[in-house]
């Protein structure tokens, strides 16, 4: 409960700060949509090896910045992410992946591995998550490069940090396509976001239908049904059906002909 209160407190700070212009933002998310993350940034993976992030991003990827010792919103955020990934029908690690990156350079690999084990225990799709949800640490230079490029602004407060809760979505080329703010994510919205980030990559047809019918509402920051598109399609579909029935179904013989 304390965590949630703290989380809402931080969210309040974030939203108040968000009202100011981008440059003044000390803590929060400055959206850098359509910009690229530095694909040559180096991180340390779960085995303690140094890897180049660009080599790993080959599918839609969720980035989220936390620090593993975090007493505040990081845990609800990661729980929210775990739930959303569990709840949609895309295959984690195949259709998309998630990177959780510690922005505290003092933290080591082992902390991350432990964290990952905890969350995997919560998940139904823990097997997929084993290879699809990766935890990283990094040195201060690389972390600064990444958080800067994604607009993730945070501030140390004693031993801890004040920071925002958000998921940053990048496409397979490293371009930022969407920010999902908050700590609760609807599995459906996560799925739509991933489909959108997948760009030209082919997926099941039903996904294309979903993408056609729903569009992103930047104001409410969620996916909404595009009523004009759906209504238009229905009208044309029914018209086509009527035409086909009239042309293809044979006329019944009437008695007086």
């Amino acid at each position: 409960m304390k965590r949630i209160v703290f989380a809402s407190l931080v969210m309040m700070i974030v939203t108040t700060v968000g009202a100011q212009s981008d440059d003044d933002v000390e803590v929060g998310m400055v959206e850098k949509l359509d910009q690229y993350i530095p694909m040559d940034a180096r991180l340390i993976n779960e085995n303690g090896d140094t890897v180049v992030i660009g080599d790993l991003i080959d599918k839609p990827t969720i980035l989220n910045f936390v620090y593993f010792r975090c007493p505040g919103i990081c845990s609800p955020l990661m729980e929210g992410l775990a739930n959303a990934m569990d709840g949609n029908d895309l295959v984690l690690g195949e259709d998309y992946q998630a990177f959780t990156i510690s922005f505290d350079p003092r933290e080591g690999t082992e902390l991350g591995v432990n964290k990952k084990r905890n969350y995997l225990n919560l998940m139904k799709k823990s097997e997929q998550a084993q290879k699809g949800w990766l935890f990283f640490t990094g040195d201060s230079a690389n972390i600064a490069e990444l958080t800067d490029a994604t607009g993730f602004r945070y501030k140390p407060a004693g031993n801890d940090f004040i920071h925002a809760a958000a998921l940053i979505i990048v496409d397979p080329k490293g371009k930022i396509t969407r920010y999902m703010n908050g700590i609760y994510f609807l599995p459906f919205e996560l799925k739509m976001t991933m489909l959108e980030a997948a760009e030209s990559k082919s997926g099941p047809t039903i996904n294309r239908v979903l993408q056609f019918c729903y569009s992103y509402d930047p104001e409410g920051q969620k996916y909404v049904m595009n009523i004009t598109k759906v209504a238009g399609t229905l009208i044309i579909f029914m018209g086509l059906m009527l035409f086909l029935v009239l042309v293809l179904v044979r006329k019944r013989k009437t008695s007086n002909v």
Partner: peptide
């Protein structure tokens, strides 16, 4: 008739 059938719903909506 086709225009009536296909276009009119739009103004209705």
């Amino acid at each position: 008739a086709w225009i009536q059938l296909l276009a009119t719903p739009i103004v209705g909506i």
